[in-house]
Nucleic acid binder design. Sequence first.
RNA 1: GGGGCUGUAGGGUAGCCAGGGAUCCUGCCAGCCCGGGGCGCUGGUGACCGGAGUUCAAAUCUCCGCAGCCCCA
Length: 491
Amino acid sequence: MADEEREAKTVIPKENFSEWYNEVLRRAEIMDVRYPVKGLYVWFPFGLKLRNLIYSILRALLDEEHDEVLFPTLIPRTEFMKEEKHIKGFEDEVFWVTKGGVDELDVPLALRPTSETAIYPMFKVWIRSHADLPLRVYQIVNVFRYETKHTRPLIRLREVTSFKEAHTAHRSWEEAEAQVRKAINIYRAFYDRLAVPYIITKRPDWDKFPGAAYTIAFDTIMPDGRTLQIATIHHLGTNFAKTFDIKYEDIGGEYKYVHQTCYGISERCVAAVIATHGDDHGLVLPPEVAPTQIVIVPIIFSKDERSAAVIETCRSVHAALKNSFRVVLDEGEERPGAKFYKWEMRGVPLRIEIGPRDVSREECTFVRRDTFERFTVPLSNVVSEAEKVLKDVYENIWRRSKEHFASRIFDFCGNERGQGREDEIKECVRRGVVAIFMCGSEECGVEVKERFDADVLGEEVTTCLGDAGERRGCCIICGAEGKRTYIARTY
RNA sequence: GGGGCUGUAGGGUAGCCAGGGAUCCUGCCAGCCCGGGGCGCUGGUGACCGGAGUUCAAAUCUCCGCAGCCCCA
């Protein structure tokens, strides 16, 4: 086989992100895209393990102040149709169950596109007095959207298989707003642990969640420069409380509407981890969520009488590590090189090679997935060194992804920099996110789309890199007072 | 919302225009040989997206459906 062909088989260039993404999902056994319905995909065992490890982080964060609940998948049309703006936002993309067996249903049932209208009728029943507040619950459920556009595994789905949505009710606007801030911190902690960089913005009014007072969103940047929305947080005010008549009796005996929030993350968080860290060899996973954290590969020479000792050493190293790590000893028949590629594709953060040479020197060879750096470690120190390496892998990929992220945010704020540089802005939009001053009107949003071919993410709340300097300036379109606003091509 | 392209073993492909025997690589299974980055050899397994039509004959032509990809708005 020609070197060129072998190379093509071995590595997948990440420059062509779309192709890379599909190829990695298949080869790393995350998802099988061959299910014969548009927008529905199958989780492979390895992908599901990764997913569950990622979710356990979020679960732990939410469990501190939320109770987990589970609501039905089906919502009666009568409840679903109560909130006018909410309906308008979703009616084009709802799947309906209209038949039971051969009979038409009197009241059609919606497959939830989101759960507000399932949960809030029950909130009305649950909430009596101020003592019941704050009420904070979450659930991890599937939601359905009838997407007509091109769907994409983990990113644009007809069935989101694991929407992690929280719903809260409070006594006042301020208390609900404090909850919004808490939610932001929970999601920050979550993405920090995944080493996925983010920008947090307040979505423009015309792009907020249907029925919300306002929406805060997290976006990350994909390798092709487009942004991916990876979390949203909504202050609902009393909009839904009024629709569903959710009231509490305050200390003075007066009945008041509750103020609500809701916030959620879909399986896009898994896509973000894959896309952010992966390279031409496949997945690179943060050790905390890697289904296999360490793989041990024996190097055996059949004519070498030390081979038995090699296997024995591998097994004892495996035994020493398995109490502290998710570790696999690969005793398969493949040649070492094939094993290396296989485990690299699955993103295993640390590989330990043990061969006759290592055994006679009482050491082993460590190879890091993030840097491919190779070095030897005394067998007596394997556990403590592995701990060190995994910690360092996390720190390195977090530093690396933030640097890369920073290099794709282009600042056109301050000193009238934005004006007269439209071609330059347009060029930057093709590569990442652009910060400009904007007034926030929908007219100017439409104009931004036309001039720069970019969507408005929203005004800056903060980013994983900290706050940027200048926050107020003249709108790049109309010249009115504007705020620091991010624009980008979006998924 | 509009337009275009595509669908051949588990994955990647040739064949299609000009109708007749389905090509090659890889994977998988068995056996050998091996092992510090996808070694090599022998044998085996496995496919024309679904349906209808035209025809003596359809992977190939026509229509419908399903699925995927790309472009424009």
